[in-house]
Every structure is written in structure tokens, then in C-alpha cells.
């Protein structure tokens, strides 16, 4: 029973996640919604991650700018630095980095929290207490992740661009206005909208995988650790897969 072939295990896992996702949507659209808990989770998932995400975004903005400069200087296109940096930050780096940081922080947090709740029978206790744990724990967390990760990504965009601005000014001189002028001039809706749209899906992936792993955690403290760990691994992988799909959809739709 334990030593099933890897392929079978993988397929079972995929099936379980799908079933769990369907159950999530059923619970999402039926019955009452735990709004206060959603706010609380949004606070923990969104606000509490802001520092970490912001710091990462700032460093990414700075580093990408510093790294891109030599190549552009070689082409004599140093003036393009704000444009190039802003495009790569907004389109790809910030959404993915934000999602990965969230997978690490939020995904593992949810996985561990729900895992320990499962192990210490808190989820059962909730059910017995007349509160649907799927609604109270899973729906709120997933919705909070779906709503706050795009917000985090947006704020991370702003912070990363600020990092980029500082990066531009280490060796060169780009005025504040010129920088933002170039940023807003270069980026079009077709850059921003797919980038923001995909963060919703990243948020969903982080939330649902964290919840799935935690909710179905095995008995014992080892099970909790495994849940947290697998939540991060699967969510991170899923983020890249979603990113791949998103870029292809955007390409097909001509949003390049």
C-alpha cells in the first residue's frame, strides 16, 4: 500500500489535488462566507509578507539593473536601461519572485499550520463545532492568497522599480521623472495585464497546494514537516508551469 510505483503515486496525487480544488470551488460558491477570517488571513498572508517580498523585490530591481548595464553600455544603449529593466521586472521577475517568496513563506506556513491542525485534531474539532473547516480554513486562505499575492506583486513592482531607479543612478544619472517617464512609456497594458493576471493564478497555486498538503497531512509531527516541505516544492514547481502556460497564452493572444 505504501510502496506504489512513482507514476501511480504521482497520478493519485494529481487526482487528489484536482478533487480538492473542485471541493474548494464547491465550498466557495455555496453557503456562507467566512469574511472576518478572510480579512484575518489576508492580513497574515498579505501584510505580513510585505516586508520579505518588498526586500526581495528591491534587491532584484537593483541587481537586475546593475547586471543589465554592462551589456547595454556595450551597445551604446545605456539610455535604454530604465526601459529594459522595467519591462523585465514587471513582466516576469517580480511576479515570479513574489510568487516564489510567497510559496516559501505562505505555502509552507499554510501547509504547516493546517498540517498541525489536522494532526492535533483541530480540524475535526472545528467540524464537530459546526464550522465547515473547508470553508473556514481552506476557502479563506486560498481566497486570501489569490487576492493578496497580486497586491504584493504590485507593491513589489513599485519597490523593484525604485530599486531599479537607484541602480540606474549608481553609475549613470537618470532623473526621477525621466525614469518613471520611460517606465510608463515602455510598459503597455499588454505588459502589465498578463503579468498581473498570472499572479492571481500564482496566488491560487500557493494557497491551494498549501491547504491541500496541510489538510491532508499524515499523523505525527513528521507529517507536518513533510506537508510544509511538499507544499513549497509543489507550489514552486506549479508557479513555473503556470508561468510557462501564461506566457504562451499571452503569446497566442498577441499580448507581447
Amino acid at each position: 500500500m505504501i510502496n506504489k510505483p512513482a507514476l501511480i503515486r504521482f497520478l493519485e496525487e494529481a487526482g487528489d489535488i484536482t478533487r480538492f480544488t473542485l471541493r474548494f470551488f464547491r465550498e466557495l460558491f455555496h453557503g456562507r462566507f467566512e469574511f472576518n477570517e478572510l480579512l484575518r488571513q489576508s492580513f497574515f498572508i498579505g501584510y505580513k509578507s510585505l516586508g520579505l517580498v518588498g526586500l526581495t523585490a528591491f534587491i532584484m530591481g537593483l541587481v537586475i539593473t546593475i547586471q543589465s548595464r554592462p551589456t547595454l553600455v556595450e551597445f551604446g544603449a545605456e539610455a535604454w536601461l530604465p526601459k529594459m529593466v522595467s519591462i523585465s521586472l514587471i513582466r516576469e521577475i517580480v511576479p515570479v519572485i513574489t510568487a516564489l517568496i510567497c510559496a516559501g513563506k505562505i505555502g509552507s506556513g499554510i501547509g504547516a499550520e493546517l498540517g498541525s491542525m489536522r494532526v492535533t485534531e483541530q480540524i475535526d474539532a472545528m467540524e464537530v463545532s459546526g464550522t465547515n473547516p473547508m470553508k473556514y480554513l481552506v476557502v479563506t486562505r486560498v481566497v486570501a492568497a489569490v487576492l493578496t499575492i497580486p497586491l504584493l506583486a504590485l507593491l513589489a513592482d513599485a519597490i523593484a522599480l525604485y530599486g531599479g531607479y537607484l541602480g540606474c543612478n549608481i553609475h549613470g544619472a537618470v532623473s526621477w521623472r525621466l525614469f518613471w517617464n520611460q517606465v510608463f512609456e515602455t510598459n503597455t497594458y499588454s505588459d502589465v495585464i498578463p503579468a498581473i493576471t498570472k499572479t492571481f493564478f500564482f496566488g491560487f497555486a500557493v494557497g491551494i497546494i498549501g491547504c491541500y498538503k496541510g489538510y491532508n497531512s499524515r499523523k505525527g509531527t513528521e507529517g507536518v514537516g513533510r506537508s510544509a516541505n511538499q507544499a513549497v516544492v509543489i507550489a514552486s514547481l506549479l508557479i513555473f508551469i503556470l508561468d510557462l502556460i501564461a506566457v504562451q497564452i499571452a503569446d497566442v493572444l498577441g499580448l507581447t
Binding site: L151, F184, T188, Y189
Partner: peptide, 28 residues
């Protein structure tokens, strides 16, 4: 106070989104 901070967070994010979209729109 949690809700207030969450509010600030949400508003900041939304404002940036609106500004971003508006500025791009203005440029276009």
C-alpha cells in the same frame, strides 16, 4: 489595527495599480 494595516496594504496596492494603468493609459 490589523484590519487597518490590511486596509493600508490593500489601498497601497490598488493605488499603485490604478496609477500604473492610468499612467500607461495617459502615455497611450
Amino acid at each position: 489595527s490589523q484590519n487597518a494595516r490590511l486596509g493600508i496594504f490593500v489601498i497601497a496596492g490598488t493605488v499603485f495599480l490604478v496609477v500604473l494603468l492610468y499612467m500607461i493609459g495617459a502615455k497611450r
